[in-house]
Simulated scan of single mutants.
Amino acid sequence: MLKDFADLSTPLIADACVRTGVPLRVAPPGIGAVVTGGRVAGPVLPVRHYGSVDVFLEAYGRAEPGDVLVIDNGGRTDEACVGDLAVLEAASAEITGLVVWGLHRDTPELAEIGLPVFSYGAYPAGPVRLDEREPEALSSARFGPHRVTGEDFVFGDADGVLFVGAAVVEEVLETALRIGATEREQARRIRTGETLRHQTAFEDYLVLREADPSYTFRRHLRRTGGAIEE
């Protein structure tokens, strides 16, 4: 999946979701890679954190090569729920990355390990709580307003993180590739002097909108083959 994601980006996947009618499930703003340039893509391995690393170790025992550990720590900003040992163990389980709704610590060590980790940022203190575990601890996770399970895929890069259902991920990726190719061609033409206004027949759009106020630019782009707004 990471190979399929190599020529794509989360903005392209988000646009493809809109184009195909797939609900957008984007992680809250602020979730980013610990190491600049980090990218992650793969099936979701969900886990909920309750203050102890044991739930991660249990999840690793269920992992398939290529899975991405998606950690629900409730978006907490008063503790770091993963550090170097948890990430090293993830690598040994052939997990390809971690996406944390919360904070991490041991930043230099994580950079040295090299496994992509996405979180809200660094915080030195680990958990001092131990909450009661829920039955769904290893079957689903919340990430912001979204619920994710093993039936989802996760994608992350410099623009953030989003989730796509396994049943539609192939269609979304194919659509994202087409949108990306269109946008690259549009960018090439702008660089050679052909403005975006000319490419999209923007003057025609203004005339058509004047005649029909319900005529949107998105509708116009679809008619002209553009790919700016999705």
Rank of each mutant, 00 (worst) to 15 (best):
S52Y: 11
S52K: 11
V53G: 10
D54A: 08
D54S: 08
D54Y: 04
D54T: 07
V55F: 00
L57Q: 12
G61V: 06
P65A: 06
G66R: 13
G66M: 09
D67R: 05
V68S: 03
V70M: 00
I71W: 01
I71V: 12
I71K: 13
D72R: 09
D72V: 09
N73T: 08
G74E: 02
G74T: 06
G75M: 06
G75R: 01
R76H: 06
R76Y: 02
R76N: 14
T77M: 10
T77Q: 13
D78K: 02
D78I: 11
D78A: 06
A80T: 14
A80H: 02
A80S: 15
A80I: 14
C81Q: 02
C81G: 11
V82P: 09
G83Y: 13
G83E: 04
L85N: 10
L85T: 11
L85H: 04
L85P: 04
A86M: 07
A86Y: 00
A86E: 14
A86D: 15
L88D: 03
E89M: 12
E89N: 08
A90N: 08
A91Q: 12
A93Q: 02
A93N: 00
A93G: 03
I95W: 01
T96Q: 03
G97T: 08
G97K: 11
L98K: 11
V99R: 08
V99N: 03
V100H: 03
W101P: 09
W101I: 02
W101K: 02
W101Y: 15
G102N: 03
L103C: 03
L103R: 09
D106N: 14
D106S: 09
T107P: 08
T107V: 14
T107R: 15
P108Q: 08
P108F: 13
P108I: 13
E109V: 06
E109R: 15
L110D: 00
L110C: 12
L110F: 06
E112N: 10
E112I: 13
G114W: 06
L115M: 10
L115N: 04
L115R: 01
P116A: 06
P116V: 03
V117R: 00
V117E: 01
V117H: 05
S119D: 04
G121Y: 01
G121V: 11
G121T: 06
G121S: 05
